[in-house]
Design a protein around this nucleic acid. Structure first.
Length: 523
RNA sequence: GGGCCUGUAGCUCAAUGGUUAGAGCAGGGGACUCAUAAUCCCUUGGUUGGGGGUUCGAAUCCCUCCAGGCCUACCA
């Protein structure tokens, strides 16, 4: 059994700048990892970049760079974005790393020796310009290959194949008997049907004459391995699989199996739902060591797919610059149901930030602290209360918020979890209206009640900060700092009564300044 | 062609086959002054895409049609 919770993300291809979809997946996984830390469970968060392949090689040529130079230039953009967005990973999987190359070659060598790989010729139509074999899918209505493919020649080429179809029946049985293999459940259905149609083996190599930017096959120096046995292997190579004891990589048995591979719906079939489990199975991993696939949806732009060619790709770095990291992280986690698609809208980003963080949570913090300072010099009094509304808040709503939040987070439903946290703040705003501390302050006989109300507000805010901390680490620190609480957020501390009698609160400073809409274009 | 998903209030979304289909935002009305022109209360608003069927009971299950999205394949 692993002693650390291990999360991975898809590794991003270093051929273009990151867009909002890349940012979403990494923030989502960062939030899951931070929740584990909040629960004081050791966690290892691996993410990275896929740097090999034909597109990188071609793009590098166009810019007059070596493939490595080009890949590293692009990698730097991803790394900079993760730093900006507060994505704090433990391991960085860059596929040009020598230790990754070593693991890939050891794996290929083993499979080759075991007869899982074989060499075979393939005859087909080949586009010289695009450097790829064409299938009937590429034919136009007239049944011909259009001019976009340039010169098309009939060509025979030898390659290495992985015996994928030999494991088809195993995979079907595995999917049928492991209902949590794919989350959400409806994706498992989709996968099941796709596997049924599976036929043929998997081509895993390219001759160096066509593609040189890759990892050389250990048993045939004329070839490099093609994407699958390079990119997918990152999940185990960077976790220390088949590594030498002094490699500096993690101890593999302390991580494996990963709790979840976080991926987008576009790479479930066939890569992660078919190739990857079969690769692991062929390597001898038992069924209980095949990780869950957590499949997230996409951010669309006004209902349609985001793409560079449509010119509607959203730049996450620009958004973070314009609205702040907290606003962006909050929006990405709150406005999509994990596994589903959502529509990206800057207007909704502003609305949700203003309504839920600025007006609700931020203003609650500000008004609560102001009253505590105005009426009590910032000193809290903790005393037993018999007031029904306060008991309802402490034993009812606060308790329920923490429970609902925890359950939702355990099921990767970040949006539902945030609702619970914000709901507790809402209950506090209601309490302020119904108890009217400004009236209590004028009546000496209500001194005890006023103290109790102020204490309940501060204590609730402490809980809200703890619950928000995986999504909004900085802002949560900000709330706790204003409450004058220096403890590192822990879920075990999210129980009522943490603030001691006589606690001195900090100075209120508006935490979430409202976002203003950009000037609208003249009609 | 095959597969999967979605369709519920103006918008974004909830509702293990079980009260009168809910919440936030937006709209309308009111209250309050501690606070970031914030907050709180009340309120308008639905033929659950259409049509059949099963059931004591359907947004939910079955059939069918319509609309949108995604994956995948061109086999008879």
């Amino acid at each position: 059994m692993p002693d650390r919770t291990f999360f991975t993300t898809a590794i991003d291809y270093t051929n273009a700048a990151p867009h909002i979809g890349h940012a979403y997946e990494k923030v989502l996984t960062d939030v899951l990892a931070r929740f584990e830390r909040l629960c004081q469970r050791p966690v290892y968060f691996l993410t990275g970049v896929d740097q090999h392949g034909q597109k990188v090689q071609q793009s590098a040529e166009k810019e007059g760079l070596t493939p490595l130079e080009f890949a590293e230039q692009c990698t730097a953009k991803f790394l900079a974005l993760w730093k900006t967005l507060g994505v704090e990973f433990d391991g960085w999987a860059a596929t040009t790393h020598p230790l990754h190359k070593q693991a890939v070659q050891r794996i290929l060598q083993r499979l080759f020796e075991e007869g899982q790989l074989y060499k075979q010729g393939h005859r087909g139509f080949y586009s010289v310009r695009q450097e790829q074999f064409l299938t009937d899918k590429e034919r136009n209505e007239a049944g011909e290959f259009g001019p976009e493919w340039g010169q098309v020649v009939e060509l025979e080429e030898e390659n290495y194949y992985f015996r994928l179809s030999a494991h088809k029946d195993w995979l079907l049985a595995f999917i049928d008997t492991h209902e949590h293999f794919v989350v959400p459940a409806f994706r498992r259905l989709e996968l099941r049907n796709a596997v049924e149609r599976l036929s043929g083996d998997l081509c895993i190599s390219r001759p160096k004459t066509r593609l040189s930017w890759g990892i050389e096959l250990p048993f045939d120096s004329e070839f490099v391995t093609y994407v699958w046995f390079d990119a997918l292997i990152n999940y185990i190579s960077f976790a220390g699989y088949l590594a030498d004891p002094d490699s500096g990589l993690p101890e593999f048995r302390s991580l494996w199996p990963a709790k979840a591979h976080v991926i987008g719906k576009d790479i479930l079939i066939p890569a992660h739902g078919v190739y990857w489990p079969i690769m692991l199975h062929a390597l001898g991993f038992p069924d209980e060591e095949i990780p869950t696939l957590l499949v997230h949806g996409w951010w669309n732009v006004s209902g349609s797919k985001m793409s560079k060619s449509l010119g509607n790709a959203v730049d996450p770095a620009a958004l973070a610059e314009r609205y702040g990291v907290s606003a962006l992280r909050y929006y990405l986690m709150a406005d999509i149901s994990t596994g589903r698609d959502a529509d990206f809208s800057e207007e909704r980003l502003r609305i949700r930030f203003n309504d839920e963080l600025a007006n609700n949570v931020g203003n609650l913090l500000n008004r609560s602290l102001n009253m505590a300072h105005r009426y009590r010099q910032g000193v809290l009094r903790r005393a037993a209360t018999t007031d029904a509304d306060l008991i309802a808040l402490a034993d009812g709503e606060a308790l329920k918020a923490v429970a609902d939040y925890t359950q939702a987070m355990e099921h990767y439903q970040i949006d539902t979890a945030l609702e619970a946290a914000v709901g507790l703040a809402r209950a506090c705003n209601q309490l302020i209206e119904s108890s009217a501390p400004w009236k209590l302050a004028k009546d000496p006989e209500q001194a005890g009640r006023l103290d109790a109300v102020l204490y309940h507000l501060a204590e609730s805010l402490r809980l809200v900060a703890i619950l928000l901390s995986p999504v909004l680490p900085e802002a949560a620190q900000g709330i706790l700092a204003q409450l004058n609480v220096s403890d590192v957020p822990r879920l075990t501390a999210a129980v009522w009564g943490g603030l001691p009698d006589g606690h001195l609160l900090g100075t209120p400073v508006p935490l979430f300044p409202r976002l203003e809409a950009p000037p609208t274009e003249a009609d």
